[in-house]
Computed example of a mutant assay.
Amino acid sequence: MKIREITNAIAAYAPLQYQESYDNAGLLFGNADWEVTGVLLTLDATEAVISEAIERGCNLVVAHHPIVFGGLKKINGSNYVERVAIKAIKHDIAVYAAHTNLDNVRNGVSKMMARQLQLQDCRVLAPKRELLAKLYTFVPHAQAEKVQNALFAAGAGHIGNYSECSFNVEGTGGYKAGEGAKPYTGQVGQLHLEPETKLEVIFPLYLEPRVVQALLDSHPYEEVAYDVVKLGNAYNEVGSGLIGNLPEPMEELAFLQMVKQQFRTGCVRYTPLRGRPVQKVALCGGAGSFLLKKAISAGADAYISADFKYHEFFDAENQLVIADVGHFESEQFTVELFYHILTEKFRNFAPLKSTIRTNPVNYL
């Protein structure tokens, strides 16, 4: 198995196109065509983790956080990032990161947090826009099903929990083939009217090359008429954070104690209690203060995230309870998510989970 097979499986689950503009997800070190000797899963690709990969015979480290965010002007070992780069390159260790792209898919990092609390009816808290497109095309009646199925196989036609979604309208197409043309039906130089089906399918914008190619490969016409229109719709499968409901309402302090236990944290920083039950819970892995207003407007009783600054706690304004569990603690279950993705895709392959706890924060 080659490294690209592993990274492609992760990218299919969390497309790199969904990472934020500041991020640096993807293959950071190594060659995608290397044969895989083993895969080590971790939250952070630290020096200790690279050493562990060497000791355990793994030449691919899959991490949540990119060890390199900006460009490296020098690699002389003056800081931990450069030392990781030197060690990884020296020992032919590839490093792949799935960061905000894994945060932004509905079944990503925040979903792993939601599982710890058994939240139900989860939805994306802040869906992203302008990530969808619609394809319109015109096909002879007899070939419409073939073309439609090819578009579905390329990834078109998914809306929420529904697949193979399309809209079909029957009509008549007309054309006159010119000199040198090889029309599917009709004669050169004569106007031809053909009973056609107009197909409309929706798809994620990043799949446009694949969807259009599937159309061209399956369509019987020499010249295929089609339009791709970028949509402004919110894409409810992609975005920041999640919001869902506890199975039963809980008293606030009991809820916070459960959060502390489930997230295995030495400290939960929280805002004043409101004296109201908690049932609707919003959450976001990592630094999530930017979603506080979204959590409030969505009617959340509590918002679980990390890295809130002192003055940001005031922004709760007694409308919900903020529970800051710590950055590492909110994302620690990402390793389990990586493991699930790879073992579901490759049933006879066993990636290894790092034994290194990379959290740089300690509690007294």
Rank of each mutant, 00 (worst) to 15 (best):
R115M: 11
I75Q: 08
L193V: 04
L199M: 10
C58L: 06
V61P: 10
L337C: 05
K198W: 09
E35D: 15
L102H: 03
V68Q: 14
L216D: 03
I67T: 09
N24M: 07
E344T: 13
A126W: 02
L342K: 05
P15G: 06
N161T: 11
P66H: 02
N104Y: 00
A316N: 03
G57A: 03
M112L: 02
L246C: 09
E196P: 06
G26H: 03
F29M: 15
E237A: 10
L102K: 01
Q120I: 12
P277H: 01
F167E: 10
E251W: 05
K73M: 03
E312H: 08
N24V: 05
S218A: 15
T334D: 07
I322V: 15
H327T: 10
F314T: 07
A9V: 11
K230Q: 15
Y310E: 03
E35K: 15
A94E: 07
T172C: 10
G57R: 05
L132R: 11
I243M: 00
K176V: 15
G266A: 02
K198Y: 05
K87C: 00
L283P: 11
S21Y: 12
G174M: 14
K87S: 05
I322L: 06
G286I: 01
I86K: 13
A97M: 11
L231T: 04
F69T: 02
F290L: 12
